[in-house]
Write a protein that binds this DNA or RNA. Sequence first.
RNA 1: GCUUAUGUGGCUCAGUGGUAGAGCACUUCCUUGGUAAGGAAGAGGUCGGGGGUUCAAUUCCCCUCAUAAGCUCCA
Length: 647
Amino acid sequence: MITVTLKDGTKKEYEEGITIQNIAKSISQGLGKSAICAKVNGEITDLTNTVDEDINLEILTFDTEYNEKEPEDAFPARRVFWHTTAHILAQAVKRLYPDVKLTIGPPIDKGFYYDFEFQNPFSADDLAKVEKEMQKIVKENLSLKRFVLPRNEAIELMKKRGESYKIELIDSLPEDEELSFYEQGEFIDLCVGKHLPSTGMVKSLKLLSVAGAYWRADQSNTMLTRIYGISYPKKELLDAYLNRLEEAKKRDHRKLGKELELFDIYEEGPGFPFFLPKGMVIRNQLEDFWRIEHEKAGYLEIRTPIILNEELWKRSGHYDHYKDNMYSTIIDEEIYRVKPMNCPGALLVYKSKLHSYRDLPKRVGELGLVHRHELSGALHGLMRVRCFTQDDAHIFMMPEHIKDEIKGVFELIDKFYSIFGFTYKIELSTRPENSMGSDEDWEMATNSLKEALFDMGRDYKINEGDGAFYGPKIDFHLEDSIGRTWQCGTIQLDFQMPERFDLTYIGSDNEKHRPIMIHRVIYGSVERFIGILTEHFAAAFPLWLSPVQIKILPVSHSSYEYSKKISEEFIKSGFRTQIDIRNEKIGFKIREAQLSKIPYMLIIGDKEVEQNTITVRSLRGGDLGTYSLYDFIQKITKENTNKDLTN
RNA sequence: GCUUAUGUGGCUCAGUGGUAGAGCACUUCCUUGGUAAGGAAGAGGUCGGGGGUUCAAUUCCCCUCAUAAGCUCCA
């Protein structure tokens, strides 16, 4: 007999050799039925595994949640569920197109994909056919069996099946790695697992899209066909998911930006957004706020030119490392480059005079317009454009300033992001392949960032090889409406540029020393930040950002005069106010104001004229009742200046 | 840039090998109406661009541009 200790501490005895599935069934009918996999002594395990010794056991269902650091481990059972669905997908594809080659098919954050090499093009219309075949496989309720082969037999098996990519995978695995396979019906796949005991558990599935993906994520390799899908143990869950996806799409900043006339991108300028009057209000508010907060934090502001001589870009290293992304022009027969970054300009400013150690750290900000030639396929609304404004700043300092300055930037980031209720993820990006400087410099810089993160007790993920060419960086990532993350803020530590530009300061020893530099942005790109904001608020911006804050809606002709008077009062008090004197019914005017996401509507009819009051309707709260003009101005002035989001 | 889609009046979309339709928006008129669409009439498009097939192309084919999802790359 063996003893099984459950998560709640209870112990049970079983015969040796019992499967975990059977244990699950014996524990509770309901739990046993929805069991997907298990944690045996903390390790994810297939339910088909047998138990021969005493264990700690936790049965995992689709909804078992872990709050682990890596989001991909939050729902371990889902990943097992989706992984098996990926195998079902591969099996269906193999049945319909036998000469297709398998590559890899993992679960992802939401669902799964499988990459295939098709001999003939696979079109989106074929998805329905594959989906049908998958449903057949589910109905067949094939059981999944795991088996292990020695290396030579594994290669032999894959050779026989013509799976050349799998052989490549086996070859790349370390010698001592166990080669496990999962088998369901006629389908066999090289796979570490884990998997469901049978295909019948995948009650409801949907293939979502077809896309290309490079083999091993390398642009020089074959482009494979990637099929994305999602699956659930219940149809209602799938429907709910698809519903949520639809809802999220309604918050797409590209759609809202156009509908609400905030910004637009035309065919004549791919990646070059136009800001419309209402979008400009938001921009200006963000920039005003930025200036006020940065002045408080001891920053100076400069503005440097957009076009500068190519010689400068050669000196900074941008020419060598970033040439393909830079636009250029010719002035008086010399090549000039459009700036992709603001730092060289800031360096020239620093160099224009001598600096004493007493003046450091020196924080110099710039709302700098940069242009970068991004690949056409990478463009994405305001999130990824070819011309954008970075809320940049460069901090020139001595080594002993590093920690405090990083901390200071963190404080600013926290202040800015918390106002909008953003939660962010931190990544530390390390040295990329194509970079400049010595290993020692990079190590020192990377360690400084790590230490700062450690001191502040921040969790972060390491993003290998994703740093800037001149230094490592801490990135702050924000989510869009459908959960894609975009890098916004960043803090980069740079030992290279000061060297390249021979920056100096005079130390207390009266000698010249080399300063260290931080490049940092808070919004990241004002454009991208507005994109994120738009999706976050579904364009119902907080009062201080709203393009139109108050819309006055006269009920009829008889209240026009009074409405105009009220309107002037609000404008005088500094509120962005509009009046709707169209010959329309009040219901219609309310509907339009509501759809334009205007925070406050003032309904003005005979009653208000008579009593010298206003009736207020808020976007979210509906009818707020009657106010005196004075009281209401007091109320919203407070809301406006506190940047209060609670309303 | 690559893979797969898409591209019809300002917007959202229908449609067809014989030179186009709806709703909203727009203009004019009627309606003066109290918390999410009052009514009527009218104007507006050489169907992304170029080429080809055809007696005839918005519809079929090729090229190109833009957009979307994903890959690669990045703020």
